[in-house]
Design a protein around this nucleic acid. Structure first.
Lengths: 116, 116
DNA sequence: GTAGTTTATCGCTCCACGGTAGTATAGCGA
DNA sequence: TCGCTATACTACCGTGGAGCGATAAACTAC
């Protein structure tokens, strides 16, 4: 019993799920999400932390906004972005665990292989 | 306490996580994964079930194979693919729940809005 | 041997997307 | 009013990847 339902998804649902995964398939966007873990930040702050160009950071942020992962608040000339879908980090944790397991398995297999 | 560790990831780890998400960001690949839920199948069977072209199905399967999500077994002229990373469905379930919550929230907000 | 089946791969077109530069818009201060 | 800053938007280029047809490779049956 692993906890997931193993329910089949309709075609439309499949598309929405794929869309969500696509929003998370860019290292830069993941970096932005992790930078936002300690609370909302402005675009400038995110530019400084991630080392990206302002235009790119702004575009990636709007992608995450459209995906429903981030929220935005404007104050003065600044735009404050925050995470509204905390399940993102659960996803990343699951993937990290899965990748770790695979690497560990490969390592074990390599170590068990007799060197010729 | 939601259960995830909220640990920051290195740049390389971020790339690997993004790569995994990218492998899941295609509806066709998700369809193949869900078709494989009830056990290993040949490419021909998957072509029949998903309605895809053989070349595409084969390519998508090799993407999932390289990502460590699927395993392959060859017997005669047939290739049997199976799921080796069951955590995939946990990921999909999490995303489904998240999407459902968002849609439900949008619906509630819409219903609460007084119609002018 | 030949023919048929199954799978993988190649070449191609087309489209989506990331990165970048430049520009526009809005708010703030002198 | 005139800058200055912060953000968003537009246009362009290059790349990567999906879809498709044709072909190649491996195996089976005759």
């Amino acid at each position: 019993m692993t906890g997931y339902t193993k329910r089949r998804l309709s075609g439309a649902a499949l598309g929405k799920v794929a869309e969500r995964f696509k929003a998370l398939s860019e290292p830069m966007r993941l970096r932005l999400l992790y930078a936002l873990m300690d609370g909302e930040k402005t675009v400038s702050e995110l530019v400084g932390e991630t080392g990206g160009v302002q235009a790119n950071v702004s575009k990636h942020l709007s992608v995450l906004l459209d995906a429903g992962i981030l929220g935005r608040r404007k104050q003065g000339t600044s735009a404050y972005y925050r995470i509204v879908d905390e399940s993102i980090f659960e996803l990343c944790d699951l993937v990290c665990g899965s990748i770790h397991d695979r690497l560990a398995a490969e390592l074990a297999e390599f170590s068990a292989t007799p060197r010729s």
